[in-house]
Each structure stands twice: as structure tokens, then as C-alpha cells.
């Protein structure tokens, strides 16, 4: 059996129970785009933003990490995040995707596709950020 590295959050492991904003419980691998959209609609603080993957490159600090550059929201703000290559992002209409889906599947048993430039990921911002 495999153990996820400590820096990868436990809720991405297949079978993890996720509570939606309306109280419904779902397994992480069963989540759909609509679950995130509907939960954000209920939320008073959070809203969903579209974050388009603009660039994916290896990290300078470790081969286990990748730097993903996103274009966030309608203003296309540039945001870069450094994540473990197996870290899953949720792509609109597609589901969980990571820089190294084989590793995600191996470590987390989470069904996952390859994250690619042009993919539109679900991200969050504050509703009243002005």
C-alpha cells in the first residue's frame, strides 16, 4: 500500500467524505462541477472563479513540485502556485486533473486526468473582494 506524502492534504484520498454547502455528503471522487457551483451559490463569502492554466513548468526547488501559472477571473490576473506534481485541481466539466495523473492515482487512488495548458480550473475568491 502507498501513503500520501505529509504535504498532500488528506481530503484528496479516494473515499474521503466531503460536505457540500447544503449539507450533502459525497465522496471526493464523485464530485461534479455542479457540486462546486451550487455550493458557491449558497456560500455567503466565497465565489467560484475560472482559472485558466497558462503555463506548467518544473519547479527549481524539487522535481516533486511543479509551478502552475493561472489566469484568474474576468480580469485575467496572473497567479502562480507551486504544488506537488500529484496535487489535483478540478477542471470544469472534466473533473480531477494533475500535472502527473499517474502519481495521483498511485498515491491517492483518485481518478485523474492530465492537467494541460488551456484547462479551466475551479478556484475560489472572496465574494466581497473590492
Amino acid at each position: 500500500s502507498t501513503v500520501a506524502p505529509p504535504s498532500l492534504p488528506p481530503y484528496f484520498i479516494k473515499g474521503s467524505i466531503i460536505q457540500l454547502a447544503d449539507g450533502e455528503l459525497k465522496r471526493v471522487e464523485d464530485l461534479k462541477t455542479e457540486d462546486f457551483i451550487q455550493s458557491a451559490e449558497i456560500s455567503s463569502e466565497l465565489k467560484i472563479d475560472s482559472s485558466t492554466v497558462e503555463r506548467i513548468e518544473g519547479s527549481h526547488t524539487s522535481p516533486n513540485f511543479a509551478v502552475v501559472q493561472f489566469s484568474v477571473g474576468e480580469h485575467r490576473a496572473q497567479v502562480s502556485v507551486e504544488v506537488l506534481v500529484e496535487y489535483p485541481f478540478f477542471v470544469f466539466g472534466q473533473g480531477w486533473s494533475s500535472c502527473c495523473p499517474d502519481r495521483t492515482t498511485q498515491l491517492l487512488e483518485l481518478p485523474c486526468t492530465k492537467l494541460s495548458v488551456g484547462d479551466v480550473c475551479i478556484s475560489l475568491t472572496l465574494k466581497n473582494l473590492r
Binding site: 464530485l31 497567479v79 478540478f90 478556484s123 475560489l124 475568491t125
Partner: peptide, 19 residues
């Protein structure tokens, strides 16, 4: 069994406010 809130699975990407 731990239950995790939905928003913990989504990266919080706050665009920098330039204005």
C-alpha cells in the same frame, strides 16, 4: 470518519487588486 468542507478542495486564488 473525518468530513471535509467542499471549499478545502478548491485552491484559493485571489487575484491581486491593482486598483
Amino acid at each position: 470518519v473525518p468530513v471535509f468542507p467542499w471549499h478545502s478542495l478548491v485552491p484559493f486564488l485571489a487575484p491581486t487588486q491593482s486598483d
